[in-house]
Amino acid sequence: MPTIVVEVMPKAELLDPQGKAVAGALARLGESRFTGVRIGKRFELVTDGPVDDALLSDVQKLAEEMLSNSVIEDVISVHVAGPDESPIDAGEPGMGSLIGEAEASTQTGTL
């Protein structure tokens, strides 16, 4: 099944209490290599239809209007999951990415 990944992060200028709590826990473990932690969300939208520009455009709109709240969050990425990226895709290599493996594998693609 093709999977479209949407990634949402709290706005950079806002305090992220969840990330702050995890950063504190890392520090208590003795980890001093990390200066900060921020926690966001990853949505995996599974479809059994074709993944085309129209669908991706609709997902982008839904990501901005419903999956995120622009007052407090930013949509970081909307991309088609690569073969290695989604558990739902496991065992179905090649059900793939319209955007390209390189972008999907770095998970930084933005539409």
Partner: peptide, 15 residues
């Protein structure tokens, strides 16, 4: 969330 009032609410700063 319904845009009847501006702004938003996030987790308490105290955690």
């Amino acid at each position: 969330e319904a845009h009847l009032l501006p702004g938003g609410l996030i987790r308490n700063e105290v955690g």
